[in-house]
Amino acid sequence: MTIDAVAGLGFPLGSGAGPFAVARGTDKLEQSMRLVLLTYPGERVMRPDFGCRLRDFVFDAVTPATGIQLADEVRGALEAWEPRAEVDQVDVVPDPAVDGLVHLVVGYRPRGESAARELVVAFQTDRSGPAEGVG
């Protein structure tokens, strides 16, 4: 079965031509990947381990070390919870215009396909750089 054969309710739930919007193929896959990244473990009662711990980094400064940790967290969550995607690379790119904003750039391929794709998810931290001394 190819990724284009998969369809499901769109996320977030909305209306389309029928009673509910339907997502197919890579749109559905990318919606599922976003859902993994934006769900914190413990939010789903019946699947307490599902999700990604991105929120653990909200109060961290945007540094190269934090970028490595964020990339590892994103890769691990997607590999654990989205078997339809093969994650090739995760880059954490600070936004030069907005302090504390990073773009999580996930290079992936739908499993069984050779075409590389990219998913970009914005992530806002509360801090833009290393903490400065007080006083």
Rank of each mutant, 00 (worst) to 15 (best):
S128A: 15
R47H: 14
G8P: 13
V6K: 10
A65I: 13
Y108E: 13
R53N: 11
D56Q: 12
A7H: 14
P41H: 01
D91P: 06
T26V: 04
L29D: 02
L78H: 03
V6D: 15
G135L: 14
F11P: 03
P19W: 03
P12S: 06
K28T: 01
I3S: 09
L35R: 11
I68V: 14
A17T: 11
H103M: 12
L38G: 05
A80D: 13
C52G: 01
A71W: 03
V58P: 07
R117D: 12
R47M: 10
P48M: 01
K28C: 09
P41V: 00
F59H: 14
A122V: 06
V90E: 10
V74K: 02
E82D: 09
P12H: 02
L38I: 06
P83K: 04
V45C: 06
R84F: 06
Y40W: 07
D72I: 03
V106M: 10
V62R: 12
L70D: 14
R55Y: 07
D4W: 07
T66H: 03
A122S: 14
D4Y: 11
S128P: 10
T39C: 06
M1S: 15
G18I: 00
C52W: 00
V105C: 05
P83N: 04
R47F: 11
V22K: 00
V121E: 14
G129C: 01
D91Q: 12
V87P: 11
P41A: 08
S15K: 10
E132F: 12
A122L: 11
A116C: 03
R53T: 13
V58G: 07
W81T: 03
L37G: 12
G18M: 00
G100K: 06
V58A: 08
P110G: 07
V62S: 13
D56L: 07
M1V: 09
G107M: 08
